[in-house]
């Protein structure tokens, strides 16, 4: 081999790495975590059932899972479809087919997830100072990875979708007849929405738009404040990326469990 770390002139060491720690654990956990999540999400999204928890004959509670929001398929249960239905009810079209692709692309182009899947799935690099298996490398400078530069647009769209999720959480405190109350489900959905907002606001593109692109902070005191706040959140972006994956599953599973009648929601309605 005469390339990579064995290129002419470099130390004549053939080992792929001389690291002695368990550097492969973190990429392995990433692969397991992301694969498990995608499997769960795929099953749920195509299940087209148990997405709307309406308990009691008079539909006292109204919980809609984030995986089906907004529910815009002709197959959607009436109460769940708040934004009208216009998509044909076919098995291969998720009920929230309008938003899910954008949410997927938002996370797919996220700077943190990029790091996570480049390192684990793509092994580029497997870990720091561990030779990568690829012969050629051009990074994000060419098609298709050049497309990662569109992250900012998915950020805008994701922020709009977070508003819809917020409205869902808000409705979980109100029964069909308009009376207010609170249930375990309302708390679960609200916690999830707060985390989703934190994740979205901690986005690197958000940090840039907020103030990162400025040169003179002193001329833009409000944006400087905003940038400082987003920068703080941004420091936790990786943690929020994983926490929101978990909170989405918890929120969805809870709604499914109530909708399927496996558990009863405790509430004040």
């Amino acid at each position: 081999m005469t390339s990579g770390t064995l290129s002419p002139g470099r130390a004549r060491i053939t080992a792929r790495t001389l690291r002695t720690d368990k550097y492969w654990i973190s990429p392995l956990l990433t692969v397991i975590g992301i694969t498990a999540w995608i499997t769960y999400a795929t099953v749920r999204v195509f299940q087209q059932n148990y997405y709307w928890a309406a308990q009691g004959g008079d539909e006292a509670i109204r919980y809609l899972t984030p995986f089906y929001s907004p529910c815009i398929s002709n197959g959607c249960i009436e109460g769940a479809a708040e934004w009208g239905t216009f998509l044909p009810d076919l098995w291969f079209i998720p009920y929230a087919a309008l938003t899910l692709p954008f949410l997927f692309l938002f996370r797919f182009t996220c700077y943190y997830y990029r790091k996570a899947y480049y390192r684990s799935f793509w092994q580029s690099p497997t870990a720091c100072a561990v030779n990568e298996p690829h012969k050629k490398y051009s990074g994000e400078s060419r098609f298709p990875l050049l497309g990662q530069n569109s992250h900012r647009y998915f950020f805008y769209i994701a922020a709009l979708i977070s508003i819809i999720n917020t409205i869902d959480a808000f409705h979980s405190f109100q029964s069909e007849d308009g009376s207010w109350g609170v249930g375990v489900g309302s708390i679960v959905l609200t916690a999830n929405v707060i985390l989703l907002w934190a994740y979205t606001a901690s986005c690197h593109s958000c940090r840039h738009i907020m103030g990162g692109r400025l040169t003179n902070f002193s001329k833009h005191p409000l944006r400087y404040k905003g940038w400082t706040f987003v920068s703080k959140l941004n420091g936790k972006h990786q943690e929020l990326a994983w926490t929101t994956l978990a909170s989405l599953v918890v929120a969805d599973f809870y709604v499914m469990a109530v909708a399927a009648g496996w558990i009863t929601d405790f509430n004040t309605f």
Binding site: Y111, R114, K115, Y118, P125, C128, G139, E140, L145
Partner: peptide, 8 residues
């Protein structure tokens, strides 16, 4: 553009 932000 060649950097893939893997943070090493």
């Amino acid at each position: 553009g060649m950097c893939n932000i893997t943070k090493c």
